[in-house]
Amino acid sequence: MEHVVVGGSLIPPINFGIVEENVYRSGMPNELNFPFIEKLQLSTIIYLAPEEPSPAFLAFMDDQSIEMVSLGDDAPSAPWKPTSEDVVLTALEVLLAPHRAPLLIMCNLGRHRTGTVVGCLRKLQRWALTSVFEEYRRYAGAKVRLMNEQFIELFDTDLVSVPTTAPDPGRMWKWLSWIRY
């Protein structure tokens, strides 16, 4: 059956992207984005923004029984200060825990903190640095922070505790398996 495409009403949050199967990234959503996010059937949101989420968003997460892991408040953002190593390590630990998927990594604009965490994940996946930075810049646009790229470059992937139990084979085998050897 052939289908005619007509105007859409699903609105992903700003800077939305798919990192890997069942791992998404974005900036802060508003009410217009809720129907879109609902379709992702999230279990977890890794929240990296320093501010409290809006009451509407909190209510939405509660309604969808999405667990929020808040890591932003102890890391004041400043242009000369990259995201702290602790925050990135904790975020990766949550991200790699099989029972957390599907999950969404987010900060205010989905550029810097989210980009740093995803960049470190890519490094853990053994991506070449050009590719890691290219992805970071794609989302950071004109606001690229060299500090974050340096953080990714110097990030020691040996510090990440990759789960030793086999992840849920139905979910994450494909890309998680790249990390493990």
Binding site: G17, I18, V19, E20, E21, N22, Q125, R126, W127, A128, L129, T130, S131, E134, E135, R138, W178, Y181
Partner: peptide, 17 residues
């Protein structure tokens, strides 16, 4: 040592698979 993996430029997931 493990070699890095080199994705094509502008590599990304569009949807699962």
């Amino acid at each position: 040592r493990l070699l890095p993996l080199i994705p094509p430029f502008r590599f990304a997931l569009v949807q699962e698979d």
